[in-house]
């Protein structure tokens, strides 16, 4: 009897000890946070427009950026700062009000409209579309005689309007807004354009429902039209790899040289 009682007491003591250790068991220290929060981030194309992180509502940011690659990871409001996409040349299953895009033309206003210089006086209107060396815009096209688009068959003025440099132009001389480059791109890249219109090519965010409001990514938001021949999509920095399992020192075992088949 006494023995049973004693052992039971020991059991309770052990149980209490277990609980105490459980409470006292502390996790490893939290990894050090980056001191400065990355606030300027890009959405798909690194050399394109940037979006600045701000709070739409208390504790709801418009975007969450990756701290290692400054890529947008998460949208608080997918329709923030968008305008209606407008008509598509061919009908797709979307309603016009519910398809929105981020305007590109607003970038022209922030920096400088192209027509500030390309007004016919400061820079004269070229006589023809023949490729020639140009002194400016080497940041966009390093060598104007080797435009990385169309494998030598097209040149700047096949897409940019000769007379109104703030607009794009189709081969039928229709002016196209920089907000809707798909109207121009689709003229040559019909098959991809059809897939894009049907939502199976390209990126859209917002509502998945049929006819639901979506923000559409237009062609130039992912592809740089001046360098597509070199890279359809410019290589980007990957997000950090997952943590190695406890006790694993390196991931060398994964490599082929290690004898992994």
């Amino acid at each position: 009897m006494r023995n049973i009682k004693l052992s039971r007491n020991i059991f309770y003591a052990l149980l209490a000890l277990l609980m105490i250790t459980e409470i006292g068991y502390s996790q490893d220290a939290q990894p050090a946070q980056d001191e400065e929060l990355v606030k300027d981030c890009y959405e798909s194309r690194e050399d394109y427009g940037y979006v600045e992180r701000r709070d739409i509502e208390p504790a709801l940011p418009n975007v969450i950026c990756s701290q290692t690659t400054s890529r947008v990871l998460w949208w608080g409001d997918p329709y923030d700062g968008t305008i209606p996409l407008g008509d598509m040349p061919l009908e797709a299953d979307y309603s016009h009000e519910e398809a929105v895009v981020t305007p590109r033309e607003k970038q022209l206003k922030i920096f400088m409209p192209c027509t500030t210089c390309h007004n016919g006086k400061t820079v004269p209107v070229p006589k023809n579309k023949e490729p020639r060396l140009i002194q400016f815009h080497q940041d966009i096209v390093p060598n104007a005689l080797q435009l990385m688009h169309g494998k030598g068959s097209i040149w700047c003025l096949d897409c940019h309007s000769m007379t109104n440099r703030d607009k794009l132009i189709s081969f039928r001389a229709e002016e196209i807004s920089l907000n809707q480059p798909q109207k121009l791109c689709g003229k040559c890249h019909g098959e991809v354009y059809r897939d894009w219109r049907d939502g199976i090519h390209g990126k859209r965010i917002g509502s998945w429902t049929k006819g639901g409001k979506k923000r559409w990514w237009v062609c130039t938001e992912c592809h740089n039209p001046h360098t597509v021949d070199a890279n359809i999509f410019l290589p980007i920095k990957p997000e950090p790899a997952p943590a190695l399992p406890k006790g694993m020192k390196s991931a060398d075992h994964e490599h082929k040289e290690y004898g992994h088949q």
Binding site: R71, D198, I200, F233
Partner: peptide, 26 residues
């Protein structure tokens, strides 16, 4: 009604999501 987070995040638009019962879905 919102897309999954991974669908929205994919910078190359490789991820597609929709209703399998709706013939017009992605």
């Amino acid at each position: 009604g919102r897309y999954p987070a991974c669908v929205e995040a994919c910078p190359v638009g490789a991820r597609k999501f929709g209703n399998l019962l709706d013939p017009d879905s992605e």
